[in-house]
Design a protein around this nucleic acid. Structure first.
Lengths: 198, 198
DNA sequence: CCGTTTATATTATGACCGTACGACCATAAG
DNA sequence: CTTATGGTCGTACGGTCATAATATAAACGG
């Protein structure tokens, strides 16, 4: 009875989710209307509600998807301290700052997510925990439970630093802040591993 | 010829700015309409444009005002390391997290500000620098220039941590993150002062 | 003490965009 | 050729920013 190959709708849905993720990061959640989101995916607004119950439904889904993608990217980096430093430097780079739509969803949307309803915040929390646990296991295989909070703290540090760097009009200052953020992130990570390692 | 006491309009303007600041922090910038903002101040939408050129004009003004207020609050705290620790603990407290409309404008709005136009970001930058220079002078009277970036980094760390704590639905985890943020902020501050002091 | 003057605020209006839904259509699978 | 699926288009209703016309109220002169 399947009139369309069953991938069709799923592929469309996925396309909407991905383009929406990018649009949200560029224009904000409240700043992105359904019509615009659908146009980004090459569709018109009416088709939206065949794929999602509501805008909030899409928001939660897109946030999850964005964090899932971020998790994959992080997992692809070489293990060990060298990998960690590479991640930190890439995250707190001028390139990342200047291309929010291709970057971290938390840096682009965190305060807006904080104002979202429970379903969206729950989706964010779940996906966030997957990232953090992934990373904690790599960072401290002997005690991933305690490393969880450390990783969360560093993540917050990096997201906040990138946001502030984006908000400043003084380029020089914004660049200096990124450098400072790298030092801070590494100091926290090294300091913590020394503490828990000793 | 002034038929109204000249304070009247200024007082009204200030009332709009202050109530708008609170509303922005609660509902976001894009999430707050002009009519709502005016109703908060006990007025109707039409009167808005007698006080401000546009919504963006108000946003820039309100952001400045919020940061000016934050600067005053910070200046009122006792100097020395004890004062610094007090500030960090108050900032990264569950009370602050759970009352965004009375709290830090950066924690509530930073990513949205990053997407604002130049005038707003410029206003943010100027007010931010006033806070940071204030604080840097208190923290390292001998070398406030270098302390500037340190303070900016800690500010970003704290804002990001508070945002993330607000986004998480797991209360326990959110609380743990705040504690971790306090440790991180103090570690950065103590580490930096040791470096520049030695 | 009262009316005039004028600043301030209200209400009405404009054109546009927001979410959400329903009717209709084209197409591709069987 | 039938059928249901995924899509477009049109629509409802409210909210958005902004402006203009109108009403109100405060301070002054007489």
């Amino acid at each position: 009875m399947a009139r369309y190959g069953k991938e069709h709708k799923l592929a469309t849905r996925q396309r909407i989710i991905e383009t929406a993720g990018r649009r949200f990061k560029r224009s904000g959640i409240d700043g992105s209307g359904v019509a615009t989101l659908m146009a980004d995916a090459g569709l018109t607004n009416g088709a939206f509600y065949a794929h999602f119950e509501s805008k909030e439904d899409l928001v939660a889904t897109a946030v999850s998807d964005q964090l899932r993608y971020q998790r994959e990217q992080l997992a692809a980096v070489a293990p060990g301290r060298a990998g960690v430093e590479q991640i930190v430097r890439a995250y707190l780079s001028p390139e990342h700052r200047d291309n929010p739509e291709e970057g971290c969803p938390s840096a682009a949307l965190l305060d807006e997510i904080g104002r979202c309803g429970d379903p969206t915040r729950q989706a964010y929390t779940d996906s966030m925990l997957a990232i953090v646990d992934d990373f904690a296991a790599r960072l401290a295989p002997h005690d991933p439970q305690s490393a969880r909070t450390t990783v969360l703290g560093v993540y917050a540090l990096m997201a906040g630093t990138l946001q502030l760097s984006r908000a400043l009009t003084d380029r020089r200052l914004a660049d200096d802040l990124l450098e400072q953020g790298i030092r801070n992130a590494l100091a926290v990570l090294d300091g913590e591993s020394a503490t828990s390692g000793a």
